[in-house]
Design a protein around this nucleic acid. Structure first.
Lengths: 125, 125
DNA sequence: CGGTATCCTAGGAGATACTG
DNA sequence: CAGTATCTCCTAGGATACCG
């Protein structure tokens, strides 16, 4: 996995964009970095998931929050919802192209968290 | 800015690490992706900031949340606090090495949010 | 300036029950 | 199975005041 970003574009984002309260960038950032949003995007970065799979994967999430999170991400055009008209119902969630872009940025973050967790929390003594 | 990550390590993180409720990785991820945590880390990724600078930069943050956020990040060993014994008091916050690592991963995310905000939120009609 | 200490409340979030 | 609907609880977080 490789992420390459133009420093000038990053600077522009930091200087003009991200910090004002209520600005669109922050709204988007909030959705994408939300407690459950991250986990859902990470799960979907691996492969499509059904509702119940996501429910189990994002360990600890309530049905309410899963529904809410998925709805937000779907409205944002990051997650695609495909419902099959069968009995019992089957609904698959996957990433859109935009979704794959963010997810690709989230994965290194998760990897870093995973690899540094012990050290970080170990400081706390 | 360039971020390169071994796919195998990413896979390990996703498969073993990130998802269990209450696991260390998720705690760390929560700190780092918290609403105000992201903004503080982003601000500090540019340069050192004083308390009052951070207060103004992370637009909308309350004193309470700034204090809380900084304390968490400092305990996590991501932010370094340097207080000068002068009058009036002066305190500078900067990133530790670990802090720079995460911040480097956060910047592309912020850049992406900044560049895609309009499109994303435009979907909502 | 760089913070605590206190109080207070909106809404984030869980539990439970129900439905197409 | 894949969700709503409701009810309730609790705490993240804002406002205000004060302090070294």
């Amino acid at each position: 996995m490789e992420v390459s970003y133009d420093p000038l574009r990053a600077t522009a984002a930091l200087e003009n964009g991200i910090f004002p309260a209520g600005c669109p960038s922050r709204t988007v950032l909030d959705h994408v970095t939300s407690k459950w949003g991250v986990l859902v995007l990470l799960a979907l970065s691996e492969r499509e998931h059904r509702w119940s799979e996501l429910r189990r994967r994002a360990d600890g999430i309530s049905e309410k929050m899963l529904a809410q999170t998925l709805k937000t991400l779907e409205q944002d055009g990051l997650v695609h919802r495909q419902s099959q008209p069968v009995i019992p119902p089957r609904v698959d969630y996957s990433l859109t192209d935009s979704g794959q872009e963010v997810a690709a940025l989230l994965v290194p973050l998760a990897t870093w968290a995973f690899e540094n967790a012990e050290k970080i929390l170990g400081n706390r003594n």
